[in-house]
Every structure is written in C-alpha cells, then in structure tokens.
C-alpha cells in the first residue's frame, strides 16, 4: 500500500539528526515538523528571516509580524533569532543549513529538479526554491512518484522548466525511498509496505537500480 502524505513526511523525519538546522518547503515538507523524533534538537529555518520556528500560535495569539515563508502565523521558540532576507539566503548559500526538504513536480535520474513552473499555466514564481536547490548540500525531495494518470514523475530527463541541475540526492515518495547516484540513476533503497519492486519499476520512467533485498519503509 502506498504511503500517504503524512507517512512520507514521517519517513523523512527519520533523516533528521540531532543538532540539525533544517529548512522545510511548502506542502508535504511542512508536515515533517510534526514528526521530528523526541529527544532530537532541531532548529527550523524559515527563509523570510527566522531561525527557531515554533508551532502555530494559540487562537487569539496570532501576531501579524510573525509569519513563516508560507505566510502562516507561527511562534518563536527559546533561542530563536530574526534576520533580514539577505542574511537568510546568505546562510543558505554558505551551507550553514544542514538539511533542506522540498517538494517537486519532476526529478530526473541525474538529480535535476523541476518544481516551479508549468508552461501554459499561471506562473507564480520560484520564491526561494532556486536558491535552496543551488546551494544546499543535503536536499531531500518529498514528492509523488506517479501522477493521477499513473505517469512517472521520476524521469530520464525533466520535461518542465528546471529549478536546479544535478542537486538532488535523495527522494521519498508514496512508493519508495531512493538515492540519486552521482553517476546517474535512481537507486532503490526502501519500498512502501506491500508495494512490489515490479510496481516501482513500472512507476519509474528514469533508470532504476535495484540491488539485493529491498526492505520495506519503517516509520518507527
């Protein structure tokens, strides 16, 4: 059975290590914050200028001056800091942020990512996505393996306009966890419970590398 969005987020949360500074994109990545393992100290960066993002405020305690990059009202935590947008992307560019988690429409077998523009549709803009993918040393992409029509979004080559090139090394989808190898290709690491390797093969248009036993994804 394929994973829900929450389960994808839960699986990605297991990649977060103690002491990490983490930037979470909009969509499934935002949900990762709900599953950070207990006992692990993580500082969330919001690229509009905050380190130490806390949970949503209680009803009535919203502060219009305190939002995240998704424009949602949030809170700060002890140890938080505030800075301007240039410094925010400065720390991203300088690779001070340990882990970036973002969504994608397509990823290619050489690590290219497309997540900002669909030709013929209203273009909203790339926001901070191009800066993040170009600079982050450690990016995990949370995405759907196949679209509603059953077509693969893990491709030999992206068809949509690119956000960044050769920058993605790990992907978690509703079907699998995969690494992108430096020489190219999606290396299958784990599969969702009950999902067959054959189905993952069918669902991956790009080069899929399967070696040895592929364990099922675990959330605990």
């Amino acid at each position: 059975m394929s994973f829900s969005k929450e389960e994808i987020a839960q699986r990605i949360a297991k990649e977060i290590k103690d002491g990490y500074y983490v930037n979470l994109g909009i969509g499934i990545p935002t949900l990762v914050a709900n599953y950070i393992p207990e006992g692990i100290n993580v500082v969330l960066q919001s690229e509009n200028g905050l380190l130490g993002m806390g949970p949503f405020p209680f009803d009535g305690e919203e502060d219009a001056d305190l939002i995240n990059a998704g424009k949602q009202t949030i809170t700060t935590l002890p140890g938080s800091s505030i800075f301007d947008s240039a410094m925010s992307f400065g720390m991203i560019r300088a690779q001070k942020v340990d882990l970036t988690i973002l969504g994608a429409m397509e990823v290619s077998e050489n690590g290219d990512i497309a997540n900002w523009k669909i030709p013929g549709k209203m273009v909203k803009g790339m926001g901070g996505a191009m800066d993040l993918v170009a600079s982050a040393k450690n990016i995990i992409v949370a995405m759907q393996h196949i679209n509603k029509a059953g077509e693969s979004k893990l491709l030999p080559k992206c068809t949509l306009p690119l956000t960044g090139v050769k920058c993605i090394k790990k992907i978690v989808t509703e079907l699998a966890v995969l690494d992108i190898l430096p020489e190219g290709g999606f290396k299958l690491l784990e599969r969702a419970p009950g999902v067959s390797i054959d189905f993952i093969k069918q669902s991956t248009a790009g080069k899929l590398i399967v070696e040895g036993e592929i364990p099922e994804m675990r959330l605990d």
Binding site: E47, D84, S85, A86, S88, F89, G90, I92, R93, D112, V123, G125, M126, G127, G128, A129, M130, D131, A134, S135, P161, L162, T163, G164, V165, K166
Partner: peptide, 30 residues
C-alpha cells in the same frame, strides 16, 4: 521573476556599493 535570495542580495549589493554578485541560484535554468 527572480530567485528570492538573488532579489535580496541584489538589494544588499546596491546598499554595499558593489555593482554585482555571483550566485549559484538559477544556473542551468531559464
């Protein structure tokens, strides 16, 4: 439309008296 970090840093450069910046954001894209 320009990457957010590029937007911020192009402002910063103006305020710091630097004519240009070099950024990896957008390399290989339109």
């Amino acid at each position: 439309l320009i990457p957010q970090g590029t937007l911020a840093t192009r402002c910063l450069a103006a305020g710091y008296g630097m004519p240009a910046i070099f950024t990896p954001a957008g390399v290989g894209t339109e």
